[in-house]
Design a protein around this nucleic acid. Structure first.
Length: 847
RNA sequence: GGGGCGAUGGCGGAAUUGGUAGACGCGUUGGUCUUAGGAACCAAUAUGGCAACAUGUGAAGGUUCGAGUCCUUUUCGCCCUACCA
């Protein structure tokens, strides 16, 4: 028997799909659309297993929807601006564009070898002027809408990469790429006014019912809405400072206040800018480590001012004002009032500086002994020691009452505060989208006129070691608009801007007038299923949601609020890690094993230390190259394996045994196919078609259900069962017609998963290649004979074959006749019978 | 500190959503064929027991005729987030 030649057959079908433009898509209003999108890759050079998993999951869905008769949009592109290109250029003295384009062409051919159903006619690349021209238009459009502005601000400066980082790109106080300690620096920056949509971005999360809850929770926390009020405190002893305003979520604890703490960056710090002690304190605050432990263990430090603040609810309560290291200028108003009894930080601070601890909330109304000593009480309870607030239920009633009082007496106002900050998009980098702005002699920004777009990124011959080469490119920097001299903005846009609208561009990839055509996004948007890694749960997804709101803001023709209707976050691909005994990482290629337990290095047979399985990464060398695997086992085997071992949303363990087993399984399916071709040609006279038809019908239901619910690992199990069943059941039992009819349907169900193999089998069987997904018949799922579980006192004691709808009474008679079952009853008194038709009978007897 | 998720054989994982726990795969064991097999095929594989049977979904309780699934408490693990006022 001829073995399955995956090389020949996979090449054949990939060529067929390409020659026939099988996956190119046009608007077709007679069909329902389905927009299936996987997060596009950064062209780093080669695809990795994470891509294989991501794009296989998406392809299964896209092909399934195509078979179901949807008009499927399944595009692919390249997130091709960004620092690696620039770094490679510096290191190897070449042009980032050349490097990027070579990578794209290599990765594209790798992706094609996976047999993905992608409409390559819609391919886009964000580093091309055809793409970023429209991004510049959007920038100016948002500028006109007041959603883009420029301000001087402290920024996170990465001294190694010589660039500004967004808050989200700073992890544990270090740059997310360079790992260098991030410094604070004041620069003029461009911002997107994302905080304008805080409420909307939060509210809309409720409408995203096809998103993982986890991602919604993460975004909710990131947006960080808190309800409270602004309270104004009079300062009684200063000419310059009359008031300090604080934001609080717990105004009801005002009577327990014993100090005010403000950030060292608070405006009142101006009063102390010449105070040597204060300067020293401020410096101390900024050098406190930013690692997790440092923050957790950081001591609360204060610098006492001579200011005295008055409690607005009781003018006799006068408290000192401190600068404190735990108050951040970034959040709220950069000032808090301290109520040590009911906030742990305030309590730590109070104990250190010997401030009063006044308990004003107690768990019970009447517990007169309750007093906070060394642990702040933040639970529910009742207010006391607080004048007009006494005995109010806390926090619900007490907060509302306090805010009412403050507002009526002009002492404060209700306020909702968000943690979400505006998005700083300026990057001091070359390889990004130029910001379409120039400055006049006075430094005022001017929009580059539309007809002068795109502002093309000039070619750079030589890269200096650091900084932005655009700064030194005078012939590009100096520009004349309407006869006047201007200097260009040399910062480029954060690459997250590029990916914030690419899903719109896919709808109209060639449109020259604008980033998209309204009629086209009206048809295709929103993305029905977006698939990618959980690492983008906040940044990319939030920015994209913002961009959609920003573009449709004030444009009634675009009524799309949310870009991604469904979101699926796939797990990572993991592999064991290996190290030499002196701690150097080893790749799986460098090691071998004899017994599967002890591992040694191939070249010198030295012992290898096997570490835990972790997400594949270059730094740990635990990577498996998809290209080699495709070469050895074929794309279908890789697709099959990457789906089979774990549910797609969980991490999957790469294993040599696993991929080998998938390969073998395809061979097994191949021999099944040969066998069935032979059986069909024999045309048996017998026909117990009912069995096969019934089986096929159940199988189709399972396949459809599991495809709909992303249970792809269970789907593969269904295929294994099918293979075993057909191998057993198809010998000498069916007429050609019955067998061909059912087998044809089964083969179609393999198309989404192992498309080359399934296409080849369809062709060999002379079945049509383009067929619709076979639907199952709901009526035929009903079995005439059913198995009834028999329980005695809730314990399973056996099974009973019975006709459908058999009554409780008759089943009891059956049980009495059954030798295995009747011994349990043994003339004992039946107290109760629980009977669920066609399912279970539970007999309760006296013991 | 706050939030989220999870815990099922040697391993990855199934379980129609309250109704036969362990589908399917890996691994292991035995067998067939073979010069040989790291190939193919067949069989077994939760635990204890010769068996009947008993036990069994991190732990303890509860609801129920019936709980992996629901409720309460608890332990452990993973992830996110963080001096957020």
């Amino acid at each position: 028997m001829e073995r399955y030649n995956f090389k020949k057959i996979e090449d054949k079908w990939q060529k067929f799909w390409e020659d026939n433009n099988s996956f190119s898509t046009q608007i077709d209003h007679s069909k329902k659309k389905f927009y299936c999108l996987e997060m596009f890759p950064y062209p780093s050079g080669k695809i990795h297993m994470g891509h294989v998993r991501n794009y296989t999951i998406g392809d299964v869905l896209a092909r399934f929807k195509l078979l179901k008769g949807f008009n499927v949009l399944h595009p692919m592109g390249w997130d091709s601006f960004g620092m690696p290109a620039e770094n490679a250029a510096r290191q190897n003295n070449l042009d980032p564009r050349t490097w990027t384009e070579a990578n794209i062409s290599n990765m594209k051919s790798q992706l094609k070898k996976l047999g993905l159903s992608i409409d390559w006619n819609r391919e886009i690349s964000t580093c091309t002027p055809e793409y970023y021209k429209h991004q510049q238009e959007f920038f100016l459009e948002l500028y006109d809408k007041g959603l883009v502005y420029r301000k001087e601000q402290y920024v996170n400066w990465d001294p190694v990469d010589q660039t500004v980082l967004a808050n989200e790109q700073v992890i544990d106080g270090k740059g997310w790429r360079s790992g260098a300690n991030v410094e604070r620096k004041k620069l003029n920056q461009w911002f997107f006014n994302i905080s304008k949509f805080s409420e909307k971005l939060l509210e809309n999360l409720n409408t995203l019912d096809e998103w993982p809850n986890k991602v919604k929770v993460m975004q909710k926390n990131w947006i960080g809405k808190s309800f409270g009020c602004e309270v104004s405190f009079k300062i009684e002893n200063s000419k310059q400072i009359k008031n300090i305003n604080c934001f609080t979520t717990r105004p009801d604890t005002l009577f327990g206040m014993s100090f005010i703490a403000v950030s060292v960056d608070h405006p009142i710090s101006k009063l102390y800018e010449n105070d040597k002690e204060f300067i020293k304190f401020k410096k101390e605050c900024s050098t406190t480590g930013t690692t997790e432990e440092a923050i957790a263990n950081a001591e609360k430090l204060g610098f006492k001012t001579d200011l005295i603040a008055i409690n607005p609810l009781d003018n006799d309560i006068k408290v000192p004002v401190y600068f404190a290291n735990f108050v951040l200028m970034d959040y709220g108003l950069g000032a808090v009032f301290g109520c040590p009894a009911h906030d742990q930080r305030d309590l730590d601070f109070a104990l250190k500086y010997d401030l009063e601890v006044n308990t004003v909330v107690r768990p019970n109304k009447t517990d007169s002994t309750f007093k906070v000593i060394d642990k702040a009480y933040t639970g529910e309870g009742y207010i006391f020691n607080s004048s007009f607030l006494n005995n109010l239920k806390c926090p619900e009633d007490s907060i509302i009452t306090t805010i009412d009082y403050l507002e009526k007496n002009n002492l404060g106002k209700k306020q909702i505060n968000f943690r979400l900050k505006d998005w700083g998009v300026s990057r001091q980098r070359y390889w990004g989208c130029p910001i379409p702005i120039a400055y006049d002699e006075k430094g005022n920004p001017k929009k580059i006129p539309k007809e002068m777009l795109p502002v093309k990124l000039p070619n750079i011959k030589k890269f200096e070691t650091s900084g932005n080469p655009l700064d030194n490119l005078l012939e590009w920097k100096n520009i004349i608009i309407d006869g006047k001299k201007y200097v260009r903005e040399t910062d480029t846009l954060d690459t997250f801007v590029d990916s914030s609208w690419y899903f719109l561009r896919f709808c109209s990839p060639k449109n020259k007038d604008y980033g998209f055509e309204e009629s086209e996004i009206k048809y295709w948007m929103p993305v029905d299923q977006y698939i990618g890694g959980i690492e983008h749960a906040i940044l990319h997804l939030l920015y994209s949601r913002f961009f959609m709101l920003a573009i449709s803001d004030g444009n009634k023709k675009i009524d799309i609020d949310e870009p991604f209707k469904g979101l699926f976050t796939q797990g990572m691909v993991c592999h064991e890690t290996y190290k030499t005994q002196d701690g150097n990482w080893l790749s799986p290629d460098e090691i071998q094993t004899i017994d599967g337990e002890k591992f040694e290095k191939k070249d010198n047979t030295k012992k290898v230390v096997v570490g835990p399985s972790e997400s594949m990464s270059k730094s740990k060398k635990n990577i498996i190259d998809p290209e080699k695997i495709i070469q050895n086992y074929g794309a279908d085997a890789v697709r099959l394996f990457i789906l089979s071992d774990s549910p797609p949303e969980k991490d999957v363990q790469w294993s040599d045994e696993g991929i080998a087993s998938s390969y073998k399984f395809i061979q097994k399916l191949w021999s099944l196919n040969q066998k069935i071709i032979l059986e069909i040609s024999r045309n048996h006279k017998f026909d117990s078609s009912e069995n096969l038809e019934k089986y096929t019908n159940i199988y189709l239901k399972k396949m459809s259900d599991n495809l709909d619910s992303f249970s792809y690992n269970v789907l593969i199990a269904n295929i294994h069962e099918m293979c075993t069943y057909l191998n057993k059941e198809t010998s000498n039992k069916y007429t050609s017609k019955t067998l061909a009819n059912n087998y044809n349907k089964i083969l179609i169900t393999l198309l989404p998963i192992i498309p080359h193999f399934a296409s080849e089998c369809l062709e060999l069987n002379k079945f049509k290649i383009n067929q619709e997904w076979p639907e199952y018949d709901e009526k035929k799922l009903i079995e005439e004979n059913v198995k009834i579980v028999v329980q005695i006192n809730g314990k399973k004691r056996g099974l009973l074959q019975a006709k459908r709808e058999r009554s409780e009474k008759n089943l009891l008679l059956d049980i009495e006749k059954d030798n295995k079952l009747n011994k349990y009853l043994n003339n004992k008194k039946i107290l109760k019978v629980v009977f669920i038709k066609n399912k279970i009978i539970n007999i309760i007897i006296k013991q």
